[in-house]
Design a binder for these strands. Structure first.
Lengths: 295, 295
DNA sequence: CTATGGTATCTTTATTTGTGATGTATAAAA
DNA sequence: TTTTATACATCACAAATAAAGATACCATAG
């Protein structure tokens, strides 16, 4: 049976064009390569190299098998890097719970960089309402949560306030409010407000209820669709507003109470008394940094 | 450095649940497995198994690495099957040139079965006009050609007549011809005929020119679109007609000269004096069989 | 308490792999 | 043409590795 060392010789010999060069690269003597490849050929019962010329070239069969050998070696690289990751105590999996409202475009940028930094760590991203996130963390179903700050504190969960996200008041361009120049809080109350509501019941919502007539949904996209449809007005984070106003689907209201943009506090939470590996703390830092520059 | 045998031990031990069972499966003594895995653990500097219980279970790290080890072994299976294919003298690549008109639905069925039969042989399928196919074969750019029969014979190319494909006369439902009950050949001539034409010049076409006014295209889909559009009438193979008549895009004309369906002869060609491997001859047989049952 | 099925460890033996010397072929330089 | 440098194959010997076999130990079911 052939072995990995022989496959490595095969691949390196092809890549470097000669057995001797291969030997130098692998830190062996030339005869070792010569024998190793000869043995590989015997094992496979296939002539891999055409040795009739000065520099040995691949035979047709050799070409055909070269890719397979390369693939095996690439897989061993994967194994090695996973082993190295373990040695560096990197986590195998990080489960992230993010409020769907906070799912901003730059988020995927962070994840992209994460996958470069920690190729051996896989990531699970749940989006769910803020109100449901602490329970996820406390029950051990998630490692890190990015959510709108709530007053409620859960033991087993470590809170860390880290910033705020600018929100704006918006409605459909066809909505009655869209006509008004400047809007005061009492102007909003006669019109239906749309709000996000978590599944785990009463939402201790950081977003104020300004109207008596409130409709709820648990899904950010439904909220947006309903608002665009003109069903009511709502508060939305800056990155969503920018996108939707540009598309002409929403109108941003100029309210008298938010000459300075109105920030929803955002916090990052994690399980208490859990050892935190490098990948998780990297992610944590990235989120902190991002939110500090945004708010 | 770890080796393939150790990885195999690792994987088989996990799959069979015990070192002893693994030893039996691999035809070794138990101590060999015990040592092999211990050495692997030393090499990787990772504890793979939790040996505290009766049956050794994977540690968390072990679970994480198990998939990688499996992947490496799967790759070696690929290599082995490629080697076996070479031993059976199967071709690494077959290049197939098919007339686009003959590209029937059952064709992909044959290719599917091909990939099951010859997993280590890759396939290139060109579709091009019949007239251009012999040149492809003769120049060594294709191995097998499936085309409408021409009178022209090329040396270097081995012709083998194998069947026929039923063709029908069709036009758009809006076309003047669509109203007539039965059509004789002279009825067709006042109307524009649409024909396929190869790139390599004059088409010694197996499809008769019945009209003086002829438009050409080199692409079957364009031909169909033009016909559906009502630009002219044309001959199309049965499988295309069935599909398009069902979709209401075409009308099949009942012609007085084809009470028996009118067959275009189809032939399969290959390069002369080339050794033919099992994969190519399998394909050849499949096509012959298919065309015999169709025509 | 014992039979069973499992693992680790030790020693011996067999196999594999690596090394260094040597011979041959070939292309380029003198 | 003769060197010279580089490349590959082969061989014999040393070194490293892996397998086998014997033995001890452990956990568990009956």
């Amino acid at each position: 049976m052939y072995n990995l060392e022989q496959l490595r010789m095969f691949v390196v010999a092809v890549e470097s064009g000669s057995f001797s060069a291969c030997a130098r690269k692998l830190g062996k003597v030339q005869s070792a390569i010569s024998q190793g490849i000869a043995n590989l050929e015997i094992d496979l019962n296939v002539q891999l190299f055409d040795r009739s010329t000065r520099k040995p070239g691949l035979t047709e069969d050799g070409q055909r098998l070269f890719g397979y050998a390369q693939a095996i070696l690439r897989q061993t690289e994967e194994l090695n890097s996973a082993v190295a990751a373990i040695a560096r105590q990197e986590e195998g999996l990080i489960r992230l719970a993010v409020d769907s409202v906070l799912m901003m475009p730059s988020f995927t940028g962070i994840l992209q960089r994460f996958s470069d930094q920690f190729p051996a760590t896989s990531l699970e991203v749940f989006t769910l309402p803020s109100i449901d996130i602490p329970a996820r963390i406390a029950s051990g179903q998630a490692d890190l949560g990015l959510m709108q700050a709530h007053i409620e504190f859960k033991h087993d969960v470590e809170h860390g306030y880290i910033g705020g996200l600018p929100f704006h008041t918006v409605c459909s361009p066809e909505h009655p409010l869209a006509g008004q120049e400047v809007i005061r809080a009492p102007d909003l109350s006669p019109h239906r407000q749309l709000l996000l509501k978590g599944e785990s019941g009463l939402s201790e919502d950081p977003v104020p209820k300004l109207s008596a007539d409130i409709w709820y949904t648990n899904d950010i996209n439904t909220l947006i669709d309903m608002t665009c449809q003109g069903i009511g007005w709502t508060f939305l984070p800056d990155h969503q507003v920018t996108r939707l106003v540009k598309a002409g689907r929403l109108k941003q209201l100029v309210t008298s109470f938010d000459h300075k943009p109105w920030n929803v506090p955002v916090e990052l939470i994690k399980a208490k008394n859990h050892t935190v590996g490098p990948a998780q703390s990297w992610l944590y830092d990235q989120f902190v940094e991002y939110l500090l520059t945004t708010s």
